[in-house]
């Protein structure tokens, strides 16, 4: 038989991890963030249990500021696959009217994403949460384990990470502790796109280039998805051919100029690109160790 290819090895590794969690944790959940990594993760999770059904629900921690196309795609995906979808939005944050424009990205991310995620995990009592994070995304992620143990208050201690030799994951934990599990740890951005192309996985149309209403702010191309984004003096909305390499809250997510409107064009563009995908994310640039700090506080 032919030896397994690079993508087949990554696929099998992810499925192994997903099955280990389902078999050893009491109440897992898949954190579905609607982006391309989530799309791949969900696809793999469904495959892992065929012909059976997905033995855990999806959870989306909504901030109220996601692109409208993301929310539509989320609901359509859950319906298409017949999987259970839970949506949580931090009610305290909503009551206080927290948003990225009024409170800034740091407060918004902390309240709506980090606190919202903790609330949701506690509310349902999930003891393992799958995430689509990859080690190639960011420096502090490079040392993240596949099974990342979090304390009862969801903190991550980079100095107390468990050794993970071979595929022998130590899935023992105490009451109240939980795991964040990253089946795509060893995938790169280009692996994700290659796999989406190979498997024909539907993704949010925002990844494909299209004329969109864009405001240029601090060098970032921000899409004005609704009227909540106020225009500063001198700013105007222009229709521009752009696409997104990552998706998040629309006021915090920068687009890139691109004409890549199909998968092969995206693949070609990405192989030539010299700019890493997280550059479009406003939250990472606060300081050299900012992601590491957010993670210790409980950010995914």
């Amino acid at each position: 038989m032919k030896p397994l290819t690079h993508l087949q090895r990554l696929e099998a590794e992810a499925i192994f991890i997903i099955r280990e969690v389902a078999a050893t944790c009491e109440k897992p959940v898949l954190l579905y963030s609607i982006g391309k990594d989530s799309a791949v993760l969900l696809h793999l999770a469904v495959k892992a249990f065929l012909p059976g059904k997905l033995p855990f629900p999806l959870l989306h921690v909504d901030t109220g500021w996601k692109f409208r196309e993301m929310i539509e795609f989320r609901d359509a995906t859950a319906a298409r696959l017949g999987v259970e979808l839970l949506v949580h939005m931090n009610p305290d944050g909503v009551a206080q009217g927290i948003g990225p424009i009024t409170h800034g990205s740091a407060v918004h991310t902390d309240v709506m994403k980090t606190q919202g995620l903790k609330q949701a995990l506690d509310k349902y009592g999930f003891d393992a949460a799958f995430g689509g994070a990859r080690r190639d995304e960011e420096k502090s992620r490079a040392k993240e384990r596949v099974f990342s143990l979090r304390s009862a208050d969801h903190r991550w201690d980079p100095k107390a990470q468990r050794p993970e030799p071979w595929a022998l994951f130590n899935t023992k934990k105490h009451q109240g502790e939980s795991f964040r599990v990253f089946p795509l740890s060893n995938w790169t951005e280009s692996d994700v796109w290659d796999y989406i192309a190979q498997e024909n996985i539907p993704v949010v149309p925002l990844y494909f280039a299209k004329e969109r209403p864009i405001v240029t702010r601090n060098g970032a191309l921000i899409m004005r998805d609704d009227e909540r984004l106020p225009l500063n003096p001198g700013e105007s909305v222009e229709m521009r051919m752009v696409r997104f390499r990552t998706l998040g809250c629309y006021p915090l997510t920068g687009a890139v100029d691109s004409a890549a409107a199909t998968l092969p064009e995206i693949l070609a563009e990405m192989r030539e690109s010299r700019v890493s995908e997280r550059q479009g994310r406003v939250i990472d640039n606060d300081g050299a160790s900012s992601m590491e700090k957010k993670k210790q506080e409980g950010y995914f």
Binding site: T5, H6, L7, D194, Q198, A268, R271
Partner: peptide, 15 residues
Amino acid sequence: KIVPAPEAAPAAKSL
């Protein structure tokens, strides 16, 4: 250099 690989490359690439 990582040049745009031929179409078939990703599938056949070894690790």
